[in-house]
């Protein structure tokens, strides 16, 4: 791939994601103060010692933002990886096995998707105890329904191609067909889908935290920080908007990269008869 063929918008996206991941990895090194350390008065304005001011309990907002990147990205990424693995395994199984297995998985998936994700999450989280791994698991399972749908469609698309038929006529086994014939031809759309799921997970996690059902305090996470500081808004204090902007920026960056990946996939398809 030619680096110069990557458009500016995708470079912006890549840069934004890199900064966020850097913050997440080296949070203790970069952050000027501790995650839970009360360092000054409540809602101090930006400037001076506190670049972005302080929050509703007098903690440094910038430090919490950096630590928050850690929690938000880790949880969203874990949920995405999990949902993706689950969705892909089930969808490829369904597509290759066909018949009853396919019918059963697909109909169950339809049922899961008949309930809006957020509503489903609210109902389930109302019952389950509040643990980080339960949160990740719930997000992953709910999201895997969308991955299943895409994965099955993509796999079926490729599975009916004649080169797959040719491999079957040669006598190749399922493993070869899935990993050597189908998978390489589905990587591009699936990579784009992974990005989409990741962006969705960030937004979803933030929404849950904002509603008080995601990450529990005092751990810093962006959605929770909005919730903590939202009462300042009516006094004209913008502390709640800063983590909100961070969420939006990261989601935009991911979407910019996804947009480019999708265009690339479709131009490959259109331009060269490539699957």
């Amino acid at each position: 791939m030619n680096l110069r063929s990557i458009p500016l918008s995708a470079w912006i996206g890549i840069a934004g994601i890199t900064i966020a991941i850097f913050c997440a990895l080296f949070a203790p090194v970069i952050a000027p103060f501790g995650e839970r350390e009360v360092v000054g008065d409540v809602w101090l304005p930006a400037g001076g010692d506190f670049l972005l001011g302080t929050d509703n309990l007098g903690r440094d907002l910038l430090s919490r933002l950096i630590y928050g990147a850690r929690t938000t990205i880790f949880v969203a990424l874990a949920a995405t990886v999990l949902s993706f693995s689950l969705g892909m395994i089930l969808s490829f199984t369904a597509a290759v096995m066909g018949g009853f297995v396919d019918q059963f998985f697909s109909r169950f998936n339809d049922l899961m998707m008949a309930i809006p994700t957020l509503i489903f999450a609210l109902v389930v989280l109302a019952v389950l105890p509040q643990h980080l791994w339960i949160l990740i698991l719930v997000m992953a399972v709910l999201d895997s329904t969308r991955v299943f749908r895409i994965g099955r469609a993509v796999a079926l698309d490729v599975a009916v191609m004649e080169f797959v038929e040719a491999a079957r006529l040669r006598g190749e086994g399922s493993t070869w067909i899935i990993f050597r014939e189908i998978l390489p031809n589905t990587l591009s759309p699936l990579l784009a889908e992974f990005g989409l799921r990741f962006a969705f997970s960030i937004l979803f996690l933030s929404t849950l935290s904002f509603l008080g059902l995601g990450i529990q305090p005092p751990a810093a996470d962006w959605g929770g920080m909005v919730k903590d500081n939202k009462d300042g808004i009516i006094f004209g204090i913008s502390a709640a908007l800063i983590p909100g902007a961070a969420i939006a920026t990261l989601a935009i960056c991911v979407n910019l990269v996804v947009d480019w990946l999708m265009k690339r996939t479709s131009s490959l398809k259109g331009g060269r008869g490539d699957a």
């Binding site: 004649e162 080169f163 040719a166 014939e181 390489p184 031809n185 060269r272």
Partner: peptide
């Protein structure tokens, strides 16, 4: 096959 395009794995 008729369509050599689709009969060969593009990758």
């Amino acid at each position: 096959y008729q369509m050599a395009d689709t009969a060969m794995n593009p990758r």
